[in-house]
Amino acid sequence: MDFPGVLANATSSQFLSEMARFWSFQDGSVRTSAAAMLLLGVSCGSLGCFVVLRRLSLVGDSLGHAVLPGVCLGFMVTWSKNPLWLFVGATATATIASLLIGTIQRNTRLKPDVAMGLVLSGFFGVGLMLLSLIQNDSRGGQGGLNQFFFGQAAAISANDLMLIAGVTAVIVAGVVVTFKELAVSSFDEGFAASLGLPTRRIHYFLMALTGMAIVISIQAVGVVLLSALLITPAATALLLTDKLPRMVMLSVLFAAFAGIVGLNVSSLSAEVLNGFLDVVLTQVGRSGLELSASRMSTSPPTGPVVVLILAMTFLTALVFSPRYGVATKLFRRCMRVRAARAGMEGASE
């Protein structure tokens, strides 16, 4: 379907102009948010590889939820969204959360997933309580903390960007310097320990870096879907290659791609998106669904859009990956069957 073609002319030209404005990067705020998405792609994409290889996917999810009370407390310091205080608060609660997860695991017979589920929901519950306290207060009502649920990348300010850049630099430096240790211990913790590597310390180092990456991502993708930015690009990369450096590179690429395209989609105005929706709905509408009343009132939040784009890249890789793709494997089996049949025919002649 040629969407712009079927769009009403007015919407179509608006769509084109909005796209042009985004991709020319003339707008300062677009430049800021795009740069931020790129940096987040670098930090989350690279750390995600180790998180996925170590089967710690739930950690991203629980730390992601655990920053909410920190963000609220950080907001309460100045009663404004001061990036530094939000960062401090978020880092503090993320640290406490990861320490708590470790404490629960060491001192009870509860499995790790239960410990993380507990911390995740407990912190989120407290976060919601704080949030409603803030919203009840005259100073906090218009604070706009709600956008931390699903993210609003367009709201990233120049100050935020400085912070993101600084933290990303720390993360990249950390990953580069300890790459060998991280790699060995991610594939085989026992082997790493037998080499004399401090596996426990490496684990906590990775946790700390992941916590930082999560904290700088909340503004862009929100606390609820944060874990996808860590897991999905890395898992996609894992489908495409066996080499860790290449996996990290691909993962960063996917994360940054999804981030910027997601930013683009969520920066489109509601009219343009509604135009698209109309097209889709008139197509599907024939199958008896009465949806025509549906309308977006505002642009969608960034988080879900980015996550869906990531999901699409993952799905594509799952099906078409040159080595491990479902379709590729099927195709190869067909070829083999054909070759075998040809061989049999050749033999029977």
């Binding site: 996925v52 879907l225 874990s227 996808a228 999905t232 898992a235 996550v307 999901a311 993952f314 491990y324």
Partner: peptide, 19 residues
Amino acid sequence: ASRIKEDAATGIVFTSLFA
């Protein structure tokens, strides 16, 4: 269909469907 482990598979599925 792949070598993605259960935790990552679960994470991908629920974030995508939720989104």
